[in-house]
Design a protein around this nucleic acid. Structure first.
Lengths: 336, 336
DNA sequence: CTGTTAGCGCGTTCAG
DNA sequence: CTGAACGCGCTAACAG
């Protein structure tokens, strides 16, 4: 119940038809400059604001894009979200953010709800995407782009990063510094990217003629606490000189674990993360990490979704973005 | 163009009128159990989903609540956001999140846009709120609740925390531990809460018979980097034994600054923050801090907004929530 | 360049 | 308890 003034009132006051007002307001052609000026003037005077609901009903569009993130507080998703928001700011679409809280049921619920007509398109960040949910999306014909899917083969337009080469490069950096006993912290096992990153690590090691000691590899959740605990065990029991983590949060937890063991970073121990979250730069020492272009992923995903919404065909169903090694101060040569 | 099926089709298939279908779907009385059952069955079979746009047009509601945060990546706002989201999950309202990026112009733009009919109500986190914007909100009669306003006297329903006693308690904790040379890091000067917190610090000091040395007080932005820089100077030039920060982010930066000066925390130096962001617990050592009930603030704000949307009068225009000192491991007695 | 006609899909009168 | 008609405010299509 925001704008009481209707298009009809403006039309009457300006002495034109409602159609003309509509055209002027939406910036369509087909209205002389003089008419346009008068309509705009009257609209301003009356304080006319188009009624979104009526417009939506007529056009069959809501002007809303849905985004389903895992969790509203993880920086990984939020960096992507920022990219999305930046891209959408140009288009006339607002962003409706939802979280699945890592729960497949809730994810399906939210998708079903949003796909029920609330949004014009959907962006999914690292979703579980059960087959049934995919089927739902296809049946509804809802434009949808997946960012960083858990399984690479989801039959939907998707954006991923080059996890393999990123991790290989990060590992190589430690090898180049002279490390040989390098530990590895795997992220969540339900993501295909976890295996791919690990393969990058393994290959880098193998190609350097180094052994991947089984006791130096451990798996944890994507949390600081999990990284702290798991790395603490790894470090105190097996004494590697460096550690590569499948995510920045894990690396940050691992660094604090090393500290709590009395080690100093990077003199006694080196760490490499993966993601380049804001925290990676805002920590002491700065974290050397493999950068995922999160903001860019968000932008590209939003752009692709917008063209899907406009009814255009996508140039590619799958887009893979590159990674980049960011060297900060958490890595150095191993102690002598 | 999500659900093709209309209420009319369901009505025909079920052999009743549209009216009845509408009543059944919206859970209104006035339909026999038998009819209700059949309608529901047919609706499910046909895959009927009510068209939001049509419903909105008719009811004059959008089912959307707008939230304007400062920045999509700061944890402070996100904790509040989580509270809001949790409360809204129960009501049938979706959340439309926007950011002002600390820009008054953009803030006004966004408010004006959302208030243009897109949302049923608005939640504002620490907004600038120029007079003109407040005027706009009043004119449009848009339900609105402000969380943590920059000026305490905004003429809108608002939720704040007890900054004064919180900070007094945090400071007292250091005094009790035996600290006397305590530095203070002020947050952004455009917030009234910055002065209030400082007054809490001053009073705690004064009441303990301690001097607030001018050179031990400095002002910075609400960022880690600013805390790092400013505290670094304070610590190296004036050698206090403890520091109180007007925000956790500042304290976290300050701790790293101390570390980069070769000090260990808390043995050489103690730190107290304010906020209790997730990072405060997820750092090493854990940060002793004054907890703001951010999640609760979000919930309470959402609840108040919902009742405003329902057209009910608010019990109180201003609600102030308490704070709580959370003692972790960043504080200890001063070095001997 | 402008006006007319006809709904979009729903909820809300009223009668029955 | 149910049905028929109307209209919310806007815009697509066409006519003028």
């Amino acid at each position: 119940m925001a704008g009481r003034v209707t298009i009809a009132q403006v039309a009457e006051e300006a002495g034109v038809s409602a159609m003309t007002v509509s055209n002027v307001i939406s910036g369509k052609p087909g209205a002389s400059d003089e008419t346009r000026r008068r309509v705009l003037e009257v609209a301003a005077k009356l304080g006319y604001r188009p009624n979104q609901a009526a417009r939506n009903l007529k056009t069959g569009r809501s002007g809303l894009v849905g985004l389903i993130a895992l969790d509203l507080t993880n920086q990984y998703g939020l960096e992507i979200l920022r990219g999305v928001a930046d891209e959408l700011a140009g288009a006339e679409q607002e962003l409706l953010v939802n979280a699945s809280y890592h729960d497949a049921g809730r994810e399906k619920d939210r998708i079903e709800f949003l796909a029920g007509g609330l949004v014009d398109g959907l962006l999914l960040i690292a979703p579980v995407l059960e087959d049934e949910t995919i089927e739902l999306l296809r049946r509804r014909k809802l434009p949808c782009v997946v960012i960083d899917p858990r399984r690479l083969d989801v039959p939907l337009p998707r954006i991923t990063v080059d996890n393999y080469h990123g991790m290989r490069q990060g590992t190589q950096h430690l090898i180049d510094l002279g490390h040989t006993r390098i530990a590895y912290l795997r992220g969540g096992e339900d993501l295909e990217s976890t295996s791919i990153r690990f393969r990058g690590f393994q290959d880098a090691m193998r190609l350097a003629g180094l052994e991947v000691a089984e006791e130096l590899v451990a798996t944890c959740d994507f949390t600081y606490a999990s990284g702290f605990r798991t790395a603490g065990r790894l470090i105190s029991e097996h004494r590697p000189t460096a550690l590569v983590a499948g995510a920045d949060l894990l690396a940050l937890g691992a660094i604090d674990a090393a500290r709590s063991c009395g080690l100093t970073v990077p003199n006694d121990f080196s760490f490499v993360g993966f993601d380049d979250l804001p925290q990676a730069a805002q920590s002491f020492p700065g974290l050397t990490t493999v950068r995922q272009p999160l903001h860019d992923m968000g932008q590209k995903a939003a752009l692709a979704l917008l063209s899907l919404i406009e009814g255009q065909k996508l140039l590619m169903e799958h887009m893979e973005l590159g990674t980049e090694l960011i060297i900060r101060n958490s890595t150095a040569a191993p102690p002598a």
